[in-house]
Structures are given as structure tokens and as C-alpha cells.
Amino acid sequence: MVTSKDQPKSYPETYYAGAYWGVREESPEACARRTANLLNLLAPSDPFLAEWYKPTRSLKDARKFPLMPPDLPTLAEQFRRGVNRERGGPVFKELGFTFWFGNGGADYDNSNLRIHCGGYDEGTANTCVLTLPTLGRSPNAERVISAPVLTQAVRSMALAMDPDWAVAMSHAYRDMDDENRAGPWVGWVTYFSKQRGTVPPLPAPVRIEPVEDKGTLIVLTPERFTVTNPEHVALANHVRELLTRAGLIKPR
């Protein structure tokens, strides 16, 4: 297993949030409704996550095509364009639809949402992944990469996308988790649907929150989780062990 001392020292730790669920046949319109709900739920968490734009050839052009406030016909059309098909061949409806768009930021000061929705082939994963700005290279990252904002981001994904599980974490810690490459991963903020089981009592400073009647959020620490802090890594590893014993994570 990779340890924190093996992580490169010259690069800032980067973070993302993602939601994941199994086969679920849905139309482009249904995917659009979920996406509209997600964008509306994300917006109050931080101004950086309140502006989104259709994909274009340049950032300058993107500003001409805002996605906020969400328009269902526009979103549904974007999902239809993201259907899986062979060049000049038939549409593979069972593989679902993909829509990838951003918040109009440049270089390291941006966020993107990549949503794959409506797939019902057993080999297809439905996902919603939010990339985040880079610490030390973005004027917004210090504010966005915080427990309150990422807790709201994961909660928004849980409510809008109804996933099996979701997480906000650093790429560095995910890469240390060699035993669960297909997930679920335990991150800084983790969500489990109630269908996966009951979250057991967890040690301080871990916070557990219900997400309406859908599932449970787990927030490891109120301060920024980083692999350079051995106490954070030890806590995350211990929580993963407890969740595995409780059956929420299946051992390989």
C-alpha cells in the first residue's frame, strides 16, 4: 500500500466529489430533472458552484450559454447528444447518456461536472463526478475545499442523483486505498444509501448526519483532510474497517 510519505511533495493535494449507483434505466428527460435538481442544490453552497455553462470551444463562448437557472429541455437535449452509439450505427440505449460541462473557470480555477445517467447494462456504471479547483493555484480553492462546502456537495448529489454511495476526498488518499479500487471509498465526506445498511457508531471527531430518508453522511473531520496528516489517514483507515465490519463496504 502507498503511504503518505510516498506522495509527491511538489504538487498540491487535489480533491473531487463523486456519486455512484448501479443499473437504472432513465430517459434523457429524467436525467435532466436530476441534473437540474443537483445544480439548484449546489448553488447555495458557494458562488463558485452556482454558475454553469454549456460546453463550447472556448471559455469566452461558454459565457454566452449559461445553464443556470436550469432549463429542462436544454439539459435533456444535452443528454440526448451524449448517447452512446457507433459512428453511423445504432444507439446503445442500455449504455445511458453522458453530459460533461463546467463553471467557466480557467486552468486550475475551475470545476466540471461529468454525469453518466440512465445506463442499465450490467457492465455500465452510472456516475456524477465533480472536479474541484486546485489549492495554491486557485483563488477559490481555499474556500471551496472545506468541510461545509463539500458536505453540501455530497448531500446535493445524494438528494438529486439517489446514488448507492458518494464521496468527497483527495486523489492522494484514494490512491492509497488499493484494497477497494472499485469503491466504495471512505473519504473526507462519505455517503451511504440506507439500502447498503446502517452506519455504526464512529469515533470522534467523526460526525454522522441523516440525509432525509435516503441515507447517511459521514464527515471524518471538520478540518481539511490531507494525507500529509498521519492522524487523518489513521482515522480514515479505522473508519473504513468499522464500516467493512458493519457490511457497508464489501471486502475483496
Rank of each mutant, 00 (worst) to 15 (best):
I145A: 02
V219D: 00
V23Y: 00
T74R: 12
V167K: 04
P133H: 13
P12I: 07
F48P: 09
P222T: 07
E241Q: 15
I145R: 00
M161W: 04
G22V: 05
G187Q: 03
P203N: 09
Y15C: 07
L202G: 08
G123F: 02
L248C: 05
K214G: 01
L72I: 15
A246Q: 02
R207T: 15
E51Y: 05
V239F: 06
R80H: 08
A36K: 05
T127I: 14
L242G: 06
L217R: 00
V167Y: 03
E142M: 04
A30C: 01
V227D: 01
P66D: 11
K93N: 08
E231R: 14
G105K: 09
P251F: 05
L75H: 07
Q78W: 03
V2S: 07
T74Q: 15
A43L: 09
N112I: 00
A182I: 10
M157A: 06
D61E: 15
S146W: 05
E77Y: 08
V227A: 08
V144I: 11
R240L: 07
D109W: 12
M68S: 04
Q195Y: 08
L132Q: 00
D46F: 02
L217W: 00
R34K: 15
S170L: 08
P8N: 07
N103W: 03
L59Y: 13
A246E: 03
S193H: 08
E26N: 09
S27P: 01
N237S: 13
S156H: 00
R207L: 09
D213L: 07
L220R: 03
H238E: 15
P139F: 03
F97L: 05
E241S: 14
F48W: 07
A182G: 12
R57Q: 13
A62N: 02
P203W: 06
G105F: 10
D213Y: 02
P70L: 11
A125E: 14
R114K: 13
R87F: 10
T228P: 00
P70S: 10
M176I: 12
I249R: 02
L202M: 12
T131H: 10
S27L: 10
W165H: 09
R240W: 04
F65D: 13
T35H: 01
R181L: 15
S27D: 12
N180C: 13
L150T: 05
M68A: 08
N37D: 15
S111C: 12
A36I: 01
S146L: 01
R252A: 11
N40R: 14
G118Q: 05
P69V: 08
D162A: 14
T216E: 11
G96I: 06
P47K: 05
G96F: 03
V239Y: 13
K9Q: 14
